[in-house]
Design a protein around this nucleic acid. Structure first.
Length: 467
DNA sequence: ATAGGGTTAG
């Protein structure tokens, strides 16, 4: 073109984004700035979007400055894209600052802000924004917004609010939408309601790969490895192509149900049947699978043979470390912790887990040395916790601490369950429960129970329909 | 020619 104008440049940039080449889009943007053609709102929205995809905070901030310079700071679309960009770069507070300066906001801007909070582990604030939206709202939330709100509920374990959002989805006809359904399946599973998860899943008419994957993960997290496998096979039968996440899901399912041969079979099938190359995250699942059943030498050998970037390395060695702790393999725990500490990733967790591995192996002195070293070097591990909502109360659990009302009641029930499990052949450990050696009979009995468990037979109550 | 969503190993 002899004289490309702003539309030509913006179209070209947008085309590169669509083709999955955001870096080229930004290059075109830079070229454009060297000419006399002035960028407009379309150009900026596209450039900011390219930065979101790349999670490029540095360039994103520069583009933001240009937005101010060229006078688009009050443009609805440009500002929505900035909110999204800061969210994707994990700068939620900057996203909020842009959001607060916006004079008009629409569903997209509100959704972008909710997503920024939800995807950065700040579910409560996401729900706070949603509450404000509902207060000011002149339109109903659409499926984009509901999916994001449900996502915020799952990450913060808000089952009651999740059910309310589900109710809203039903009222506005979004409950069998693929995206909303995936979020609901995930939310119910993470809040402990596998039966509801299955119920929502089965209402989707033609589920694509993502609802299937959500449900495979849901089954996996509840120890229903065989159900994970059934779902995966059903998906293949329907000619739905599994993606990299689906394989993580099925390997996770096999790992958590001790289905090692099946897990290895699925790993091999990736290249043999599905034309995919297993990635570091898939091998990490296998390391977990081998480690979990005590095949630590194999797991270690595999871990050493995988090429990883720093983030993948942290997952890989973290996985091996906790498996070593579980089985009291101090030797491997030491090697795995070294990798984590050297790479400056999850250092606090590495110290604590290694120290616990020493404790399990009876090496008290090593354990206390390590705790001392933590104090000296100022490494502090924030204790993890779990929580559950019952009616309108939230109960928070820390290891070794009971801080809420009715705590003694919970402890009494727990002791009773432990006693019953011991009777049936389980042997308690400091973390998790494993079978006692040589109690095959009890194992078979429990295995039967497990196979019999069919979630089709259990009906959910009608409370969702009531909502 | 422009902005938003769901699944991911320890």
């Amino acid at each position: 073109m002899p004289e490309p104008n702003v539309v030509s440049y913006s179209s070209l940039m947008s085309g590169y984004v669509t083709q999955g080449k955001p870096q080229v889009s930004l290059w075109i943007f830079r070229e454009m700035l060297k000419t006399t053609v002035l960028p407009n709102e379309f150009t900026f929205a596209t450039a900011v979007n390219a930065c979101s995809i790349l999670a490029e905070l540095r360039i994103g901030t520069q583009v933001h400055s240009l937005v101010e310079v060229f006078g688009f700071r009050f443009n609805l679309v440009v500002c929505s894209s900035l909110v999204d960009m800061y969210g994707k770069c994990n700068q939620v507070d900057l996203a909020r600052r842009v959001f607060d300066t916006m004079v008009d906001k629409n569903l997209v801007s509100w959704t972008s802000m909710i997503v920024a909070y939800a995807q950065n582990g700040r579910g409560n604030e996401a729900l706070e924004i949603f509450r404000e939206f509902n207060f000011l709202a002149w339109v109903n939330p659409n499926h984009f917004m509901l999916a994001s709100v449900i996502n915020a509920c799952s990450s913060s374990g808000k089952l009651v609010l999740g059910k309310i959002a589900h109710g809203a989805a039903i009222r506005h006809g979004h409950d069998s939408n693929d995206v909303v359904a995936s979020a609901l399946v995930d939310m119910y599973a993470k809040c402990g309601c596998i039966v509801y998860a299955n119920w929502v899943f089965r209402r989707v008419r033609n589920p694509c790969v993502i609802p299937y994957t959500s449900m495979i993960v849901a089954a996996a997290k509840h120890g229903l490895g065989k159900l994970s496998i059934e779902l995966f096979e059903e998906m293949i039968d329907k000619r739905i192509k599994p993606n990299d996440v689906s394989f993580v899901a099925i390997l996770h399912g096999c790992s958590h149900s001790g289905l090692i041969d099946e897990g290895l079979k699925y790993l091999n099938s990736m290249s043999r049947k599905h034309g995919m190359v297993p990635e570091a995250k898939h091998y990490t699942c296998i390391v977990d699978m081998l480690g979990r059943t005590g095949r630590l030498d194999e797991a270690y050998r595999l871990a050493k043979s995988i090429e990883v970037n720093p983030d993948e390395g942290a997952s890989l060695w973290g996985t091996l470390l906790s498996a070593s702790r579980l089985h009291g393999r101090v030797d491997i725990a030491v090697e795995a912790s070294k990798k984590l500490i050297e790479s400056n990733q999850q250092v606090d967790g590495a110290y604590v887990t290694l120290s616990n591995a020493y404790v399990l192996a009876g090496e008290w002195e090593h354990a206390s040395d390590l705790r001392m070293k933590m104090k000296q070097t100022g490494v502090y591990k924030e204790p993890g916790c779990s929580w559950i909502e019952i009616k309108d109360s939230t109960y928070v659990f820390y290891a070794g601490k009971v801080l809420f009302e009715r705590g003694t009641e919970v402890l009494r029930t727990l002791k009773e369950l432990e006693r019953e499990m011991k009777e049936k052949g389980y042997k308690g450990r400091s973390q998790g429960l494993v079978f006692a050696d040589g109690e095959e009979e009890a194992m078979e009995e429990i295995d039967d129970l497990w196979v019999d468990f069919s979630i089709e037979k259990i009906r959910p109550d009608r409370s969702i329909e009531a909502v």
